[in-house]
């Protein structure tokens, strides 16, 4: 119930946070919104000697229009990202996914960067980040580097962030006018997805000109359904056309088998949910096209 003892620091700048990280190294853990870390500490699955709280660094919060992309500060809460008009206009898929993420209280504390750094394959933000080809800005003692989504997610709960680095910003290329939908399949309310599909499409008349599809919980990391994306490009936005392309969604994936479903079941779900998500993103189910 209660975490093991630790020392606590709450630096007010990224430089101070990096210094604390350099000093305490392996014995330290970064605290963002705490919505994944605190349960882990309370169950004593981890017992760091130092906790470095990023919550007092104002510069890590907020969303900026940076020309061809949006720059989302790592410490911006799910709640704030979810209701942000810039995100709605330029990266609708993220707004859609966040409405399915956790509950109101968790969204008030949990952060965009924290969820991505946590890299839970069942987390709801990895697939949209992959689909939108986001980049991750990592700051460390040697300076700043930017890592594309395809290289950021390394394995279960493992990312390209080194022990001495902090994720400071996520850059999301603008997808103006693209429709979007996030289809999350759960057995009961308020659960992690068995499988979820993040789809965003650019329409030209009744034809899907381009599509990006990200898959949640279809492997140890979020992945893009590249074969389905290729088949969707130039495809008429009809039930039959989309169904055929969506059937390719699970190609090349290696989904897990667990209590909620075996790998074959997940492959089947990926196809069904991709069809639904793409049709909804294309405005064929009424409510999810851009206005």
């Amino acid at each position: 119930m209660i975490p093991a003892s630790f020392e606590y620091v709450a630096p007010t700048s990224v430089a101070d946070a990096l210094a604390a990280l350099a000093e305490h190294g392996d014995d330290a853990k970064i605290l963002a919104g705490g919505q994944s870390l605190l349960p882990v500490l309370r169950m004593r699955l981890n017992a760091p000697e130092w906790v470095i709280d990023l919550g007092r660094i104002d510069g890590l919060r907020g969303i900026r229009d940076a020309g061809d992309h949006l720059a989302i500060g790592a410490m911006t809460t799910h709640h704030d990202v979810g209701r942000d008009p810039l995100v709605h206009e330029h990266a609708l898929l993220i707004s859609k996914a966040i409405t399915h993420l956790a509950d109101a209280q968790v969204r008030h504390r949990g952060t965009f960067g924290g969820a991505l750094a946590h890299a839970d394959p069942a987390g709801d933000l990895g697939a949209p980040a992959c689909a939108l080809q986001a980049s991750f800005v990592l700051q460390g003692p040697g300076g700043t580097r930017t890592v594309p989504a395809a290289e950021f997610f390394v394995d279960l709960f493992e990312t390209a962030i080194s022990d001495d680095e902090i994720l400071t910003e996520i850059q999301v290329p603008k997808h103006d006018g693209w429709g979007a939908s996030y289809e999350k399949f759960v057995r009961v309310a308020h659960q992690w997805p068995i499988v979820a599909v993040a789809a965003t499409v650019r329409m030209e008349g009744d034809t899907i000109a381009e599509a990006r599809v990200g898959l949640t919980n279809m492997g140890s990391t979020p992945v893009r359904a590249e074969e389905a994306e290729e088949a969707l490009a130039g495809c008429p936005a009809t039930e039959e056309g989309v169904a055929e392309a969506a059937a390719l969604a699970a190609e090349g994936t290696d989904p897990p088998s667990d209590l909620n479903g075996d790998a074959d079941y997940r492959r089947h779900l990926a196809g069904v949910l991709t069809r639904r998500a793409v049709l909804a993103a294309a405005g064929r189910n009424g409510t999810t096209a851009p206005v």
Binding site: G34, L38, D53, H79, A104, V106, H108, R109
Partner: peptide
């Protein structure tokens, strides 16, 4: 805003 107080540290 609402939070789950079991998932916030007092120092936060």
């Amino acid at each position: 805003t609402s939070v789950k107080s079991c998932n916030v540290l007092a120092v936060q």
